[in-house]
Amino acid sequence: MTDAQVLLTLAVALFAIGFLGVVVRRHILIMLMCMELMLNGVNLSLVTFAHEQGSPLGAVLVFLIFVVAAAEIAIAIPIALLLVRRKRTVDLYAYTDLKG
């Protein structure tokens, strides 16, 4: 058992837990935070791979993911706020009529 395997297992666990959180938690902000957790899991795996391969590419990708996460949250939070203002609730189930 190497360190890399441990770290990758941790990355898998973080990603899967994040995913599970997105599926089971009904609070929309908590869902957003779980998505961040998934991204963190991916970041960890990238860093680990880069570490193993001795290549800076993984670090570059991590850096790009930071930016993407910042952009994502910058859009997602105003949308969530607008939704909450519309219906006065943070419960995802109140928004099923958005399917059109």
């Binding site: 089971v24 938690r25 609070h27 902000l29 961040e36 996460a69 969530a80 609730t89 943070v90």
Partner: peptide, 26 residues
Amino acid sequence: IMVFMVYVIMMLDPRDPSCAERFSVL
């Protein structure tokens, strides 16, 4: 990111009863 998130959470009413259910049916 997380400061932003915390800030938003504080903007919402912490005693919001609408989200009484923690988990979805799935």
